[in-house]
């Protein structure tokens, strides 16, 4: 708040809630970005001059991103859930 004299009260949790909603909105964009990165990897080259990324590391990366996205989605939905359904841990 601009005015320092009056200590304006903003509830932290609802602020957090809205940031969580922002996170929920941004999550697919994060997924798109992370899954676009493999396109930058060196490809299999018939001439064999550049060492291509091995499929095993590609699998690890892609599935790692997958797990990461699922975990973030789990976190976000749990946090949003707890607000919407049980609002009784009121230590603001």
């Amino acid at each position: 708040m601009r005015e320092r004299a009056t200590p304006l009260f903003l509830e932290r949790r609802s602020y957090r809630q809205r940031r969580l909603m922002d996170a929920a909105r941004l999550l697919p964009l994060l997924g798109v970005l992370l899954w676009l990165i493999p396109l930058l990897w060196p490809q299999r080259d018939p001439a064999g001059e550049v060492a291509a990324v091995s499929t095993s590391s590609a699998i690890l990366y892609i599935f790692g991103v997958w797990v990461l996205l699922a975990l973030i989605a789990l976190f976000v939905s749990l946090m949003l859930d707890s607000k919407a359904e049980t609002a009784d841990d009121g230590n603001v």
Partner: peptide
């Protein structure tokens, strides 16, 4: 997967 994690949209 992207659609599901972007369920909010």
């Amino acid at each position: 997967t992207l659609v599901m994690v972007g369920w909010w949209w």
